Simulated assay, not measured.
Amino acid sequence: MLGVEPVGTRDNFFDLGGNSLVALQMLALVKKRHGIAVPTVTLFEAPTVQTLAAVLDERRGESATQPVRQPVRAAPVHVTERADEDRRIAIVGMAGRFPGAPDVSAFWRNLRDGVESITFFSEEELIAAGADPAQVRDPAYVPARPVLDDVGGFDATFFGMSPRMAAITDPQQRAFLEVCWEALEQAGYAAPEHRGRVGVFGGANISTYLLRMTDHLLGGGQKGFTDFEVIMGNDKDALPTTVSYLLDLHGPSVAVQTFCSTSLVAAHLAVQSLRNGECELALAGGVSIRVPDRVGHLYGPGGQESPDGHVRTFDARAKGSMFGDGAAAVLLKRLPDALRDGDHIWG
């Protein structure tokens, strides 16, 4: 049905190119051959041959008249606001990737010690990254940028993603997934038990990965993936829902886009969601990674970018800023609940 061979018992239906329309066709075929009706949502919860076979075995002995069991969802919490209610929100987990700092602790040390985390590139590095040699040699070209280490590195298997799907997914999506997981893990909520509903609020920059790879990813020919898969791996709208799906989080999943204030607005919406009782935990953050990342910029008088690659904030010598890469997420919880559960409160 998918036209893919071979298929392993643990290969994910959707990673192999399946979508909701093909899912309906496949489940109709399952019902025809086995006489067992399987709800479409079950395929999202059991997307491999192994897990779907277990579902079929479980249902095979059930009576045909027995109603199909629906997945159990947490009952919504109805919050009644009181005048004396503590509406404060606690940060119980946080994670990030920053230029010159692989985590939040290193980032804080760099801030404390006044470390400049802007990387300057050689002509060879710039040309190897795809920069125009003539532009690189222009006197107005600034060979510097704040970059992350190893934006291509990603443990696809850990997150249940096939290497094929990981390869067509924007590094922004992969980095945001990593920091969300790390924030949950730091807070002690990596496992689904006792964490309740977890909302995800976040945004990303435009996918320069897709723009650079358009001919390869969306062009015709002998590509091994569909346009739908490419869109899901690169569209900004898919950022939070991908995290919710891969980390099995049940709660609001909202893409936020307000340019430079995106992460702040995401945190604001997460706080509102917690106060409204829509979730028990909320991840909020953002990501921006340019591809290729190790390139400079052409300085223009009156522009926003620095003429020499340095940023001198609150200094009379300040002449411009630098646009770099990064990813971060905080895990938020209502303060009374965090105190009750003994969570470590960062702020």
Rank of each mutant, 00 (worst) to 15 (best):
A106D: 05
I91G: 06
F120V: 02
R88A: 12
A83I: 13
Y141R: 02
F121T: 13
S63L: 08
R69H: 14
E116Q: 09
E116A: 09
A140K: 13
G114I: 03
R112F: 01
E116D: 15
F107G: 00
A140Q: 10
A128Y: 04
G93T: 04
A83Q: 10
D138E: 07
R60W: 07
A128I: 09
Q66K: 12
Q135W: 05
F120T: 14
D138T: 14
A140I: 00
E85W: 01
S117E: 04
D84R: 10
R73E: 14
A106Y: 02
I118C: 13
G100A: 02
I91C: 11
T119R: 15
D113P: 07
L56M: 03
A95H: 00
R109Q: 14
R137F: 01
V136M: 11
V68S: 06
V79C: 12
G96L: 01
P139E: 09
V77S: 14
D103W: 05
L111H: 00
D86M: 11
E124G: 05
S63Y: 06
R73I: 08
G114N: 10
D138A: 07
P67M: 11
I89A: 02
H78R: 15
W108K: 01
H78E: 15
R82H: 14
I127P: 02
E124R: 15
P139W: 11
G130L: 13
A74W: 04
P76N: 06
V77P: 03
A101E: 00
M94S: 12
D103M: 06
L111M: 14
R137E: 02
I127C: 06
E62Q: 12
W108N: 00
G100V: 04
R69S: 13
P99Y: 03
E124Q: 15
D103Q: 03
V79W: 05
P99N: 09
E58F: 02
F120L: 03
E85K: 07
I89N: 09
A134F: 02
D132S: 05
A101T: 00
P102Y: 10
I89H: 06
A106M: 06
F120W: 07
A83N: 05
R88K: 03
T65V: 11
A90D: 06
V104E: 03
R82V: 03
E58T: 06
S105N: 04
A74I: 08
E81L: 15
P99W: 11
R88N: 11
